[in-house]
Each structure stands twice: as C-alpha cells, then as structure tokens.
Amino acid sequence: MTVRWDGEDEDARAAARAAAERRALLDHQHGPEIVLANEFAEIRVCRVETRNGSRLLIESPKSGQWVALCPFELEALTWQNPRTFSAMIGRPFGPLLGHDEEDT
C-alpha cells in the first residue's frame, strides 16, 4: 500500500481542475505574452478572452500558480499603496485573506 498524506487526493484533483481551467483560458489568448523577472520572481502575463469579455492571466511558471483578473480588479490595484503589496508579499503562496473571513 502506498503511504499518503491526508487530503493528498483532494489536492491533486484541485490542481487538475485549475490546470484545465488555465488551459481553457489560454485557448483564447489574445496577443503576445509578456515576461517580467527579477532575482525574486518571474511572472508571465497575457490577455485572454472569455466568451463575454477579457481577463489578464498572470502566472508564475515556477510555482504554477495563476490568477485571471478582470479589468475592475486591475483598476483596484491602481488604488493600492505599498503596504497592501507588502502585506501580500509577507504571506507568500497563500491569500492575504483566508476563505473564512471571505463572506464577511
């Protein structure tokens, strides 16, 4: 019997779902990709079209994590100060606010 951690299967399923979703977005990439990097991070950005609009796909090739932001979310970034980003960077690889606080 293979030894497994609790929740390993669920994690694998979630990763497969996210990968399928990413492929579906990339099927409708519009225009070229942009790659930006410094010594701490590398990021790939491209515009993707959904049936009814557009999003900006931001991916980290190293971790495989990605997010597809709508124009409204991107505009919200312009309202932020360094503290917001410091807080985000201060909690690497996870969301700034947990799901529990979300609905609130």
Partner: peptide, 11 residues
C-alpha cells in the same frame, strides 16, 4: 450555460 462558460461571464 454556454452563454456564460467561464467565471465572470454574465448576460
């Protein structure tokens, strides 16, 4: 449903 296939799509 095919009119709103992806997250965020709306009519």
């Amino acid at each position: 449903e095919s009119e709103i296939p992806q997250p965020g799509d709306y009519v």
